[in-house]
């Protein structure tokens, strides 16, 4: 058991996502930064599918109910176990009764706390991922609250050792990020200047951004071709453009379908970089080919598994 003394701003249970049900309108959810989530699980010796806690901007204070191993990855927070400072991206041993506090945040937006054995909660459609919008998964489909008790999975194999450390795999520093996208499927609706406008602009992440998507403010993308699109499935990373011309970047909790034109899709390797940015940060976009996207993903995977 882990007791929640302070919940933080938006702390949710996330596993690798509720896949296989999008044709019923069920969003995938799961971690915003899949890479840091996986690194946290790797550090403590968990399978990739184990649930972690996703911590957003302001972290929680937790009391451990048993001896366990844990690690925190992603956004850089000052971590304190009782009175001692702890390093990020490192396996730590805690004894029953010790308190873990997330202090000030130094960089990035989202951190992942993995404990050996993973967090346990009743799976919904095969997943523990929390989707707050539909009140599904995790702890009653909501973010943690003070007084919650979190169940833990059985810590079967202890392959991790306290002190094991890794480099972070996602860049969290800086006030913004340049990310790559593959144009389409509706880039032709924005005329020959559409992609150029997107590439030349700097887009600010507005406060109207959340786990569903980031609303961006910047040079508007005007549609040359009019006419409605018929709703179809939309993926994570899609850059969809409503009539206002200011793009919305779809993230982990996005709806399964949409009808706005999509000028491009951020590549899988760069979605975690976006996840580590928060409102008032900026994003810049750079078109790339499928080959570049796949090379980036493979390089990223090597770094994760090295």
């Amino acid at each position: 058991m882990i007791d929640v003394l302070q919940p933080g701003l938006l702390t949710t249970i996330q596993d690798s996502g509720r896949w296989g049900h999008q044709h019923f309108g069920v969003p995938v959810a799961g971690p915003m930064d899949r890479s840091s989530h996986r690194l946290a699980n790797l550090l403590v010796g968990n399978r990739a599918s184990c649930a972690t806690l996703e911590v957003t901007l302001v972290g929680p204070q937790l009391a451990f109910g048993r001896d366990l191993l844990f690690a925190v990855t992603g956004a850089e927070f000052d971590l304190v176990l009782d009175d001692g400072r702890l390093a990020m991206n490192t396996v730590h041993a805690a004894r029953a009764g010790q308190r873990l506090s997330f202090g000030p945040r130094r960089a990035g937006a989202r951190a992942y706390l993995a404990v050996a054995g993973g967090f346990d909660s009743p799976p919904v459609l095969g997943s523990r991922a929390t989707h707050v919008g539909s009140a599904t998964g995790g702890l009653d489909g909501r973010a943690l609250r003070t007084g919650d008790r979190l169940a833990l999975g059985a810590d079967v194999e202890r392959t991790a050792r306290p002190g094991d450390a890794r480099q972070g795999v996602v860049r969290v520093a800086g006030p913004g990020a340049r990310v790559r996208f593959i144009p389409g499927p509706h880039d032709d609706r924005f005329g020959p200047r559409g992609i150029a406008t997107l590439e030349a602009g700097r887009y600010r992440i507005t406060t109207d951004s959340n786990r569903m998507g980031y609303r961006l403010a910047g040079p508007p993308l005007e549609q040359a071709a009019a006419g409605e699109l018929i709703s179809c499935a939309v993926p994570t990373g899609a850059i969809q453009v409503p009539p206002s011309g200011e793009p919305i970047l779809l993230m982990a909790d996005h709806q399964t379908t949409g009808g706005y034109p999509r000028i491009g899709t951020v590549i899988t390797a760069d979605v975690p970089v976006v996840a580590q940015r928060s409102p008032s940060d900026w994003l810049e976009f750079e078109a790339c080919t499928l080959e570049v996207a796949l090379r980036a993903l493979i390089a990223h995977e090597r770094k994760l598994l090295e």
């Binding site: 896949w19 049900h21 044709h23 018929i230 709703s231 499935a233 379908t257 899988t268």
Partner: peptide, 21 residues
């Protein structure tokens, strides 16, 4: 990972590390 039908489309979402395009 997912097969999602729309009004007049079928979209397949896949893991590019486990299969290829």
């Amino acid at each position: 990972l997912d097969v999602v039908e729309g009004f007049c489309t079928v979209t397949v979402v896949f893991d590019p590390l486990r299969t290829d395009v």
